[in-house]
Design a protein around this nucleic acid. Structure first.
Lengths: 225, 225
DNA sequence: TTGCTAAGTTAGGAAAGCCTAACTTTCGAA
DNA sequence: TTCGAAAGTTAGGCTTTCCTAACTTAGCAA
């Protein structure tokens, strides 16, 4: 049995993954969004979108944006599974830190076989999330999504556990790790200044005053009122 | 500092690696050999050879074949190091068998970073040879070559240790493993029939009669007369 | 020495992916 | 309601890497 995914190029895989991240199963993704995400000219995206629509991987309404077809979504989720398992493996077995795995995984995800990905999953004990807390799609394409709230949107006095961080920037990730703000960490919101002002939070180790942007990148599961 | 190797494509890396394997530092490699090795048309090779010569990676004498420049050799050895360390890692840490690692490594060698390769080398304890007994070039490009003789060229009565196997065919490799004919195994040549006839050999476990071609693929270090 | 064959090269072309420049559509503000 | 900016598309071009077909060279055999 031959599926579309046997013959996809690196570029195509990147387009589909980008569109999945941007449209998130709901709204369509715009040409310029995709171009920005992939650092390409919008004209290049128009051309590729046309090809991928003809191949049945995308639904395209002219001047209105694109959405993935079920086949396109399958490919995107497969890439996401690869990416996140590779990141997990590099951190768990090859001593990478969470701020350096992204670029490596970005290249490897196009080169590994399904077999290798599953062997890595075995070696890891089939984790549900990667080191950043991002959910790892299962081989059949289901995603274990957890209901989360940005720390920046919580009310002072409430406690939560950090579940996921919304950044890939190495500097930012290193800073978060320095403060102990990693998935699994327990935090209590102490104070939140208005107009996106500084936020005071308390971990099990220390109290920190952080910027709003930082707190917005921390997605948490609320623990108590 | 920027070196040529930062901007090489998959294709270029494959050409240089193929030329290294074919010309082996000594004689030039011919266009048709390279074409055959890479499964390409000779005309395609002519074109690429021209480009790589202009880039200073190859020395080309028209109608006479090509040889690597020092820079080209550096790249080829880097790819060989990657390939063999990846194979070693997959076997040692991810449960691959020696007959299935080649294709996986063939893709991964173009995608891994130098950093990842060195981490794999660390995890493996810096092996000198891969699972097939092929020497792993050091990062600076030196090769730990061992003097070997094909089992098929040895005289009956002599003993040897298998050091290296000269095949990548999965079927062939599985057969060798079934017979216990793997690097490190001890064998004694009992009989050798003329005209490339069958060869009788004895391992520590059993006696086998094998074809000449098989014995020619087993490169050994002689142990005693 | 000639002349044939095998090997190598050149010419011309296709597909993938990218670009810039020019044109078209959408949509909100006046 | 119109009209202009922003977004999207088309046209045309470039590079890489491959192909086939046609031509050239090398080298051996008669």
């Amino acid at each position: 049995m031959t599926t579309v995914s046997d013959t996809l190029t690196r570029s195509v895989e990147d387009y589909l993954k980008a569109i999945y991240r941007l449209s998130g199963d709901i709204r369509p993704a715009s040409t310029s969004e995709i171009a920005q995400h992939l650092a390409l000219a919008p004209a290049s995206v128009s051309g590729m979108v046309k090809r991928l629509s003809e191949q049945g991987l995308l639904e395209h309404e002219r001047y209105r944006g694109v959405q993935l077809t079920p086949e396109g979504r399958r490919v995107a989720l497969r890439m996401l599974r690869r990416h996140r398992l590779i990141e997990s493996y590099l951190v768990a077995h090859l001593g990478y830190s969470w701020d350096t795995v992204h670029d490596e995984a970005e290249r490897l995800e196009h080169a590994v076989s399904d077999d290798l990905v599953e062997r890595m999953a075995d070696a890891l004990g089939h984790p549900l999330e990667d080191p950043h807390g991002d959910p790892i799609p299962s081989p059949d394409g289901s995603m274990p999504e957890t209901a989360v709230v940005a720390l920046a949107d919580m009310e002072p006095g409430h406690s939560a556990r950090i579940h996921r961080v919304r950044t890939r920037e190495p500097e930012f990730l290193r800073h978060l790790a320095d403060l102990g703000l990693v998935p699994g960490a327990h935090v209590t919101l102490r104070d939140r200044r208005p107009f996106l002002g500084p936020i005071t939070l308390e971990t099990d180790q220390a109290t920190h005053v952080v910027g709003h942007e930082l707190a917005a990148a921390l997605l948490c599961t609320v623990e108590d009122a």
